[in-house]
């Protein structure tokens, strides 16, 4: 039972990291139809800025320092995302393939610049000592950092939901995902919603970047790779443009992957791809996705 809980919660923790990447991808795709390959660079930018903040704040990183690093890293990634959207994406209005291509270019350039500055080896990320302890959950000893991943993901899910549900811009975003042309026809400027979505997606990815660098024991320009791909898988399984769908799919994939890996090493990735193929065959629009007209 202990191992069962341990693997389950570790899986949910991993799923939380996937969700942080996938939520932005899903909204950006749902609203604008942009396949954002630069999302991995948002994650890396957030991770490096977070690292910079955490090392500046003194030799002993406290919990407050870490939270601050997460927020600043998220903000930096959000602003970077906003810049990319303004400089490149908006100029390729409705040329979806070209938009995807440009984001591929961005991810290459960001990777090259960060790689040139910091090298491609892992650099230790300073974490609070509490992260190294274990928390007793139902008899299982859970590494404390997993709890932080889950809490952050849940917090962002709630914030996301509240924003989409209760604010005007959230209403425009939801309407835009549903039918962008109609929102445009009603005379509402969707452009601001685009920028908001890019900023929010970048923010979540940046926060995710800080957590991913804790999970992978350090920062490097290469940490984003597998998370971006898992992010895409989560978005496809959860349904494009659906944030709750992403959350559900992320948790599902995290847990299934962890359990498969526990029984046979390396089986996890394989099972996830089989799951993806299965979902595509049975429900091509994803778990909570809507059928496109």
């Amino acid at each position: 039972m202990d191992t069962f809980i341990l693997i389950g919660i570790t899986g949910i923790g991993l799923g939380a990291l996937y969700f942080l990447v996938a939520s932005g991808l899903s909204l950006i795709y749902g609203l604008m139809g942009v396949l954002n390959f630069a999302h991995g660079s948002f994650l890396t930018v957030g991770a490096f800025v977070g690292y910079w903040v955490a090392t500046r704040l003194g030799p002993e990183t406290t919990m407050t320092d870490f939270i601050l690093a997460m927020i600043v890293g998220g903000l930096a990634a959000g602003l970077f995302a906003l810049m990319i959207e303004q400089l490149l994406i908006t100029r390729l209005y409705d040329r979806h393939i070209d938009q995807a291509l440009v984001t591929v270019g961005v991810s290459l350039v960001v990777g090259a610049v960060l790689g040139g500055w910091f090298g491609n080896d892992l650099i230790m990320f300073p974490t609070p000592l509490w992260f190294l302890t274990a928390v007793n959950v139902g008899g299982a000893m859970i590494p404390a950092d997993r709890i932080v991943y889950i809490a952050t993901a849940v917090l962002l899910l709630i914030a996301n939901w509240a924003l989409l549900k209760f604010t005007r811009i959230g209403l425009i975003i939801r309407a835009g995902v549903e039918n962008r042309n109609m929102v445009n026809a009603l005379g509402i400027n969707v452009r601001r919603a685009f920028s908001t979505v890019f900023f929010l997606g970048g923010f979540a990815a940046g926060v995710g970047g800080v957590l991913v660098s804790v999970y992978s024991n350090g920062v490097s320009p290469l940490i984003a790779g597998s998370y971006l791909i898992y992010g895409f898988i989560v978005v496809v399984i959860g349904g494009m443009g659906s944030v709750p769908g992403s959350f559900l799919a992320a948790m599902l994939i995290g847990v299934i992957r962890q359990f498969a890996n526990y029984y046979v090493t390396g089986l996890g990735d394989f099972v996830v791809v089989i799951l993806l193929a299965g979902v595509l065959l049975i429900r091509p629009q994803g778990l909570l996705g809507k059928v496109r007209a």
Partner: peptide, 26 residues
């Protein structure tokens, strides 16, 4: 170093050429 490092990565120049072509020279 801060300019030379990134330039040493072939991805930088190729990525910039790529972005330029997609944006301005399809």
């Amino acid at each position: 170093e801060w300019i030379g490092g990134p330039i040493a990565e072939p991805a930088l120049l190729l990525g910039l050429i790529f972005i330029f072509i997609v944006m301005f020279a399809p």
